[in-house]
């Protein structure tokens, strides 16, 4: 009991001391805080160093999303590349947790230090692929998924990816 009372009094004293401490609040619109490049804000889709869209529509971002705000549909290009036919993020649901970026095997989906996404109409918070896709590589400059994957695409035949041997000639009898 005494301990409890003491604890309450100490708490009150501690709080009272805060009368003389500085406020932590940043006066946001007048005063812009520094945001690190890895800050988790508005989501973009990036391109690989060759300028092709990085997203391969693997759906991992969608499944990693805890609020289920990413929906996409895969499609295939002539050369076998996978790409999203549509890619939709409902930013009115997004919690900017960055799980999609963590899950992305191609570094396509990235969060940017832009969080100022206010709209009067909630419908405007629904971003389609054309709103998300940027022309650059974003934070990761050199990675190109298809250079490490085994699938053949235009400009990269079988066996031409990183660490790959030339295709096997099955008709050869050599050991």
């Amino acid at each position: 009991m005494w301990e409890a009372i003491r604890s309450q009094l100490v708490t009150m004293w501690t709080i009272l001391q805060h009368t003389f401490t500085r406020s932590e609040t940043v006066q946001y619109p007048e005063e812009k805080p520094y945001l690190a490049p890895r800050y988790r804000g508005r989501i973009v889709l990036t391109c690989d160093p060759d300028g092709e869209e990085r997203c391969v529509a693997c759906n991992l971002c969608a499944v990693a999303c805890p609020v289920d705000c990413i929906a996409l549909q895969q499609a295939t290009k002539e050369d076998g590349r996978w790409y999203p036919e549509f890619f939709r993020i409902n930013f009115s649901r997004c919690i900017m947790c960055g799980m999609c970026e963590e899950a992305c095997p191609t570094n396509a989906i990235q969060l940017t230090p832009d969080f100022e996404m206010c709209e009067y109409d909630r419908q405007s918070m629904v971003y389609e692929k054309e709103h998300l896709q940027i022309a650059g590589t974003g934070k990761y400059h050199d990675y190109n998924y298809y250079r490490v994957a085994g699938m053949a695409i235009a400009g990269k035949d079988k066996g031409e990816a990183k660490n790959e041997a030339p295709p096997i000639d099955v008709k050869s009898l050599m050991p």
Binding site: I15, L16, H18, T19, T21, R22, S23, E24, T25
Partner: peptide
Amino acid sequence: LGIWQDRY
């Protein structure tokens, strides 16, 4: 409350 909680 703001003063005591280090805000405005």
